[in-house]
């Protein structure tokens, strides 16, 4: 590089920092949205339909199960509404616009890093985090065309801020030539698909968490049916839950994201074995990273089974999804850095 003061990689870093800053704003907008949306939804519904949900807007009082169900049915409509006919949550719109803007900077930073390094920008932990979070945001934005998942916005931007900010601070390494074992088409395929799987599993994870919260709310509402006026449970969880679909619907959606993530993960496992066979002379050796990839795969196979097993649907399977994603994150952060193994690509010392 001639001395222009800034190298491509410096510019990339600048763009990434900018993206983090914008995502932070988006996160705040989404958080405000969640805080406000239950009131707003109630108001709009009152205006829009003759159907009145008595007392929904009044704070504090616990709701009956019928009220909960009516809200959930409405939320279901909202979830699947086309782009044009969605409820106009102002702050969610701001959040999404900011996310798109942040994403553009993010893509710019990622692409420049690739150009600076003259290879795909996912060859060490820093780059993997850079591209991985980019894919999480990309999948989220693409899915928005199909489902109104803006209630996941604060999760998606929050996770991205933590991972991306953490990656710049803790994992940043300068561009160095690729180590020999990484010079393979399988780097391009295997790692990219793994990131893509992670993106889908992240969304599923968030939906499973919401599912648990929603099912608690439904439980409390049902419990309230039998309780006396005096000792009705008061709190049913955060109020934005009122604008979310039923626990069932959230579970079903989480499942759909999970099976896509699972397919990609299965592919990652197979592609990784092919690569290992070329690089190390065996397709499988229970190297630490291989162990954890396997553990994650088996956990999600367990999740899929749980969804099909009586007594395991619902809350239990949601916990499996949460455990599964925790293992994915563990695999990426802790295993890469602290476990001894052949997969020494973190680029850190």
């Amino acid at each position: 590089m001639p001395d222009t003061g800034l190298s491509l990689d410096d510019i990339s870093k600048l763009l990434v920092w900018t993206a983090v800053a914008i995502y932070t704003l988006a996160f705040m907008a989404y958080a405000i949205d969640l805080a406000r949306r239950s009131d707003q939804a109630a108001k709009m519904k009152d205006v829009a339909t003759a159907r009145t949900l008595v007392g929904v807007a009044s704070g504090g009082r616990s709701q009956t199960i019928d009220e909960v169900r009516a809200e959930e049915a409405d939320a279901q409509t909202q979830l699947e509404a086309g782009l044009g006919s969605r409820r106009r949550y102002l702050w969610a719109r701001i959040g999404t616009s900011l996310t798109v803007l942040g994403f553009l900077f993010h893509v710019g930073g990622d692409v420049l890093r690739g150009i600076a390094a003259e290879r795909v920008p996912w060859s060490n932990m820093y780059e993997f985090a850079l591209t991985g979070t980019m894919l999480i945001v990309a999948v989220y934005l693409v899915v928005l065309f199909r489902y109104d998942l803006r209630f996941l916005g604060s999760f998606v931007t929050g996770l991205t801020i933590v991972l991306l900010g953490g990656a710049i601070l803790a994992y940043y390494v300068e561009v160095v030539p690729l180590a020999d074992p990484l010079k393979s088409v399988w780097l391009v395929i295997h790692v990219f698909v793994a990131s893509l799987a992670t993106a889908f599993l992240a969304l599923a994870f968030a939906l499973s968490v919401l599912q648990l919260m929603q099912s608690r709310r439904e439980r409390l509402a049902i419990a309230a049916l039998d309780a006396d006026e005096g000792d009705k449970p008061r709190r049913q969880g955060p109020r934005f839950l009122r604008t979310l679909p039923s626990a069932d619907a959230l579970e079903s959606l989480a499942y759909r994201f999970t099976i896509i993530g699972f397919i990609f993960w299965t592919f990652t496992l197979i592609a990784g074995s092919i690569w290992a066979n070329d690089a190390w002379g065996r397709y499988w050796g229970f190297d630490t990273k291989e162990v954890w990839t396997f553990v994650v795969w088996v956990l999600y196979a367990g999740y899929i089974h749980a969804r099909a097993t009586r007594g395991w649907r619902g809350t239990r399977s949601a916990w499996l999804s949460i455990v599964g994603f925790s293992a994915v994150m563990f695999n990426f952060t802790i295993v890469n850095q602290f476990f001894k193994g052949l997969h020494v690509y973190s680029g850190l010392n």
Binding site: V298, L299, H305, T309, W312, V335, G341, L342
Partner: peptide
Amino acid sequence: MRTALVLLLMLAVAAIPGSIVPQRSAD
């Protein structure tokens, strides 16, 4: 199904120690 599920979860858990303790085969 329940047995399959429990065995799957056990398999996942049982695989973990091998990533913490060094293995004769890998290391």
